[in-house]
Design a protein around this nucleic acid. Sequence first.
DNA 1: AGCTTTTTTTGATCTGCGTCAATTAGTGAT
DNA 2: ATCACTAATTGACGCAGATCAAAAAAAGCT
Lengths: 248, 248
Amino acid sequence: MPRTCCLPSAEQRTPHQEVACSECGLDPICQVLDYAEPGSGIPEGILIRRMPIPRGEMLLAYNQPFRAIYAVKSGSFKAMTWDLSSSERVVGFFLPGDLIGTDGLATDCYSYSVRALETSSVCRLEIEALPKSGRSREAIQDALITLLGQEVAMNHMVTTSLIQQNAEQRIAAFILSLARRSGIRGLNRQELGLSMSRSDIASYLGLARETVSRILTRFHNSNLIELRKHLLRVLDHGALERLSVLSE
Amino acid sequence: MPRTCCLPSAEQRTPHQEVACSECGLDPICQVLDYAEPGSGIPEGILIRRMPIPRGEMLLAYNQPFRAIYAVKSGSFKAMTWDLSSSERVVGFFLPGDLIGTDGLATDCYSYSVRALETSSVCRLEIEALPKSGRSREAIQDALITLLGQEVAMNHMVTTSLIQQNAEQRIAAFILSLARRSGIRGLNRQELGLSMSRSDIASYLGLARETVSRILTRFHNSNLIELRKHLLRVLDHGALERLSVLSE
DNA sequence: AGCTTTTTTTGATCTGCGTCAATTAGTGAT
DNA sequence: ATCACTAATTGACGCAGATCAAAAAAAGCT
């Protein structure tokens, strides 16, 4: 599977992995849809699978009316808002298996914009078209509750860990979080495609670009990670955990 | 309504306010329960109203099995976890109208401990006893989805704002958040009972006790707030908003 | 009340990281 | 390949806020 940008060496090419349906966050809902008996009121086309999204394209925009939930199949995205000084602020990254847009379930509008960091693909679930009553509706509701609950729990962890940590701890935790999320979805947890820019990471972690750069090279020099362009290989998982304190 | 600690002057006494049911986060669910037709499968005692909780008592503990969701009727609580160095970390505060324990919906265990900051009262909703099917189940599911969605949206805002702000901005935002939440629930948004200690605030905001103290007195000296013991009166809402940048 | 313990405030250093500035590397277009 | 432009790295410096230390205020005892 080719990548967006053309890199000379195979080593430097991000392995563009696709998450298996069974490991995807949308799977509980997909299963309901797949196994729904005919006449359950679920129309065709409610779920669009593997929509391709080119690098740089907006998947959805802040304040747009809430229409759909997306699941990342391959590639990656960043979520952003803008503060009063109109400068962009990165508020999250989405990796294969992650759900995008769940916040709209309460607010009816998306609370951030989402842009593809590389050529990616998503599955799109139309909310309007979901069945309005019946057994499959209950099952879908249950699945949504679980998904939202997970998001609450995860956000909680992220907030907690980020606020109280210094720059080194934040970056260690960030790398581990990428690795862990890849692992959970059944993807490579040693080699990570750092598709986002240093500025994106800095904005997300509340640090300066320069600090991110400095600490990444520091980690590299201490043989905690190997870093070639945008491919990051975790060399010493234990050491990173010890640094990040909030190991898991 | 008497307060826990005995303060001499009436001015220094926190007005111990109780949130109206109509303004409470649990209300959507309470309504379903109240108006459920007989035979809907909803047992008696599923909802315990106005449970009193003495100051300092644990409402629920980290890793305990998830049994119930609580709504704060009056008083306040703090949520805490512990990092590896076994020092306490405050991860949130609950005010009248707020829901406690929603994170358990996904994880089956509470992800933090919750302790009463003053004599408080809560309503307790037993999750096990909720109807397993039918119309009222669907209504409850819907309500839960909305609640969780709101929590996701709010957490998002908090995270975003906290991480990128300096100490002054964080504290301004914190005060405004308390005021806004009081306002939303129909309570006094000028006079806030700061039931938590400076250490709690510091831990929550990722600052040192001393910094919180210094900046609060700075705000006091600039006539942004009036501060007597644990009663905080917002004097210049606009100035605080301008400070916090992420005004709303 | 008086005594003890905890919390808060205030002051004096010290340092991590943001900011500014300059260099190098990477990317895309012709 | 060359040029132009953006992203990343590296260095120098200053300040916001952590840390250490001590006094003052509040709260909880008997």
